[in-house]
Design a protein around this nucleic acid. Structure first.
Lengths: 195, 195
DNA sequence: ACCGGTTCGTAACAAGCGTTACGGTAACAT
DNA sequence: ATGTTACCGTAACGCTTGTTACGAACCGGT
């Protein structure tokens, strides 16, 4: 058991290392050697767990998906109303704390690297589609009398707004503090009649 | 004059090459050699015009600023009303055609590379601040009776929304066609009482 | 206690990178 | 016509990169 425990611990350390390097040092410094250094191992171990460098990016993106998915479902389950759930899951998608800011950096780096990579962009599409259907479902539930076209438009507006806020807040946290992002989201929700 | 004309023509070809490589091949393939190949010259010329690779990125970002600035001012001048001007300049900031989509890719790549580069991130802050003050000015003019806090919140919402739509549309044009982006923007402008 | 297989570190490889130095060439001034 | 200067291509340097091959160490089963 100590063997398998060590192995999963190593896997977790490697995951953290990939995440940390991409989140703090950016896309161009995400190299096999820097990940190995961050994980406290050698490049051999990294290349035994990941077939190539693109797998590092893919892993970081899947990690981002898992983390946000778990958080979003917990928020949705704990919210008293549907509208509160919608607001809560949109809030966690912006750059309102250091955790979210790092996630936005990872999102940005992955997307920039996926521009010329079909496999990576396919992963982005999968995750983004899942996110979009969730927001559309909650929007439709929060405004049952809306036409599907309006639900789609408003959900798209909310998604684009939070994603943009995540990127802008990640690149310039001082110019886009959490309070302004929250006010922005509330202003939008009120304007759309969802609050 | 033939000499200086050649020189400026070479400069324009180099600018186009930097832009094209970054827009079509992404950040990681933006290398001195690929730019030279795209410009039809050698690496020597590239390194005579740019001190280092970061200058390529900086140049692409400044090019993006110049292009969008000129287009935005033309749109603003040609718009019949302030609200039409606001809508027009927001439209051009999303991924509604191939030109805008390439601009979003350049924006994405630059931002991802600026994460761990103070000089690049400073350029982003400059350009973004200028963009933000413009949208805030137009928003305030379009809704003169609003309190400054509301102007700021709504302008931030519009900026984040268009920037997010630009990124999402650039990464997945099929999932975010131009019609949906336009409907999204109009829905938001109507909801905010700006249309 | 020995052995087979997994696991990971070591070391090296070729390729590509940014960057620099040098030489030739063409335009300009005198 | 000749010297000077700016311009740019050639070639190379040193370094980092992703990736691979090989060997040692360790674990579980017999």
């Amino acid at each position: 058991m100590s063997r398998s425990a060590d192995r999963s611990a190593q896997g977790a350390a490697l995951s953290r290392a990939v995440w940390d390097v991409l989140a703090t040092q950016g896309l161009e410094r995400l190299t096999v050697r820097s990940v190995a250094a961050a994980a406290g191992c050698t490049t051999g171990l990294v290349m035994h767990r990941f077939p190539n460098r693109r797998a590092l990016l893919l892993h970081a993106r899947q990690l981002l998906h898992e983390v946000t998915l778990a958080r979003v479902e917990a928020l949705e389950a704990a919210a008293p109303t549907i509208r509160a759930a919608l607001r809560a899951i949109l809030l966690q998608g912006m750059s309102i704390d250091e955790q979210n800011r790092q996630e936005a950096v990872v999102w940005l780096g992955f997307l920039a690297s996926a521009i010329s990579d079909d496999e990576l962009i396919a992963e982005h599409r999968r995750n983004n589609h899942s996110w979009r259907t969730r927001v559309e479902r909650l929007t439709a539930a929060a405004a049952p009398d809306w036409a599907p076209a309006r639900v789609s438009s408003v959900a798209l507006a909310l998604i684009a707004m939070t994603e943009g806020a995540a990127a802008l807040g990640a690149a310039d946290p001082a110019a886009f503090p959490a309070t302004q992002q929250v006010e922005m989201l509330d202003a939008a929700l009120i304007a759309f009649g969802l609050f």
